[in-house]
Design a protein around this nucleic acid. Structure first.
Lengths: 151, 151
DNA sequence: CACAACTATATTGCGCACAACTTAATAGCG
DNA sequence: CGCTATTAAGTTGTGCGCAATATAGTTGTG
C-alpha cells in the first residue's frame, strides 16, 4: 500500500471503477423495479425509445439512439416480440430494413412504468439538480470517448 | 414529442442512460488500450486488486472489493489462470476457500499497463479534479443504492 | 442491363453479470 | 460426538454487449 510502484493503478483513485459499479447497481435496482413488467433494463431502454417515437423505427435507428448494434438488438427485439410488446416487419419500401413497432400491449405498458424514474431517483439519494449535472458530465464524457476512438 | 403523456420517461431527461452509455464507452476504450495484454476490462480490474494486495486473496474478498459474485469470478479467474497470470489454490487451513495469487507473469504485467489510466483520462477529456469529483459522486450513488436495496 | 460497392440485418462466438441452485467444508450447539 | 446451520466456491441458465462475419437487398456506374 505505502510502497506501491504504480499508485495510479489503485482502484480507489480511478474513475473507471465507480462508474462500472454504479451502472451495475443501477441496473440491479431497475431489475427490481421492472420485475412486474417482465422487462430487463436494456429492454426497458428500447421501450423508452419506442414510446418516444410516433413512427415505427428501424433496427439501425434504435441502435443509433441507444448506441447498440444489431448483434445486441436483434435477439433483444425477438424477445420483446415473443413477449407480445413489439412487432418486427420488413419495410416494404426497402426489404433490408426491419421496422419495429409497438403492439397494443406494448403501448399500454408505458403507464405501468411511469413511476419508475422517480422511484429510481429516490434510491440514488441525489437531488434532481445533482442528477441533471451528473447526466451532463457523463454525456460529455461519452462524446469525448467517441471522438477519441481514432487512436 | 410535444404532447408526451409521461415526459419523465424521456431518454434524454434521465440519468440512467448516460451512465449506461458512459460505462460501455469506457469499457470499449479499455478494450483498445488493453489489447496487447490480452486482458478484458473486468480481468484488468481483478488484476488491479491483486497488484494492490500483498497477500493472495480469496474469491470472496475479491468479490467484495469488486462487487462481483462467484458466478462471475470463478470462470474469469479460470481464464486468468489459463493465461498464466494467476494461480488458484485451495486454502490448506480452510478447504472451502480458494486463494488467488499472482504468478511471475502476472506480477510483471503491471508495468505494461502503468500508462493505461493516464491514457484513458486523456480520452475522457476531463481534468483530474473533475474526474475525482465525478468519482466521489458515483461512489455516493452506489452507496445509496446499496442501502436502498431493501424496498 | 451487368456488376461492383454499399447498406441493413442476422448469425456466431466469446466473455461477462447475476439469479438460483448444488456441493463440499466448517462452525456451532445440545 | 452428532447434527444442523452456515459459509465458500462452483454450476447452470438467461440475457446482454460486441467483434467478426454472413446474407440479402439496394444503389451507382459504365
Amino acid at each position: 500500500m505505502s510502497g506501491r510502484t504504480y499508485p495510479q493503478l489503485s482502484l480507489d483513485l480511478q474513475l473507471c471503477f465507480p462508474l462500472y459499479a454504479a451502472t451495475r447497481a443501477v441496473t440491479k435496482r431497475y431489475a427490481t423495479l421492472l420485475k412486474d413488467t417482465g422487462l430487463t433494463y436494456p429492454q426497458y431502454l428500447v421501450m423508452l425509445v419506442l414510446w418516444e417515437s410516433e413512427e415505427p423505427l428501424s433496427v439501425t435507428s434504435l441502435g443509433q439512439r441507444l448506441r447498440l448494434d444489431s448483434g445486441t438488438l436483434t435477439p433483444l427485439l425477438k424477445r420483446l416480440e415473443a413477449a407480445g410488446l413489439v412487432r418486427r416487419d420488413r419495410d416494404p419500401g426497402d426489404e433490408r430494413r426491419v421496422l419495429v413497432s409497438l403492439t397494443e400491449d406494448g403501448r399500454n405498458l408505458e403507464e405501468q412504468v411511469a413511476s419508475v424514474p422517480q422511484e429510481l431517483g429516490a434510491s440514488m439519494g441525489i437531488t434532481r439538480d445533482e442528477a441533471l449535472a451528473l447526466r451532463d458530465q457523463l454525456t460529455e464524457l461519452v462524446d469525448h470517448l467517441d471522438t477519441a476512438e481514432s487512436s
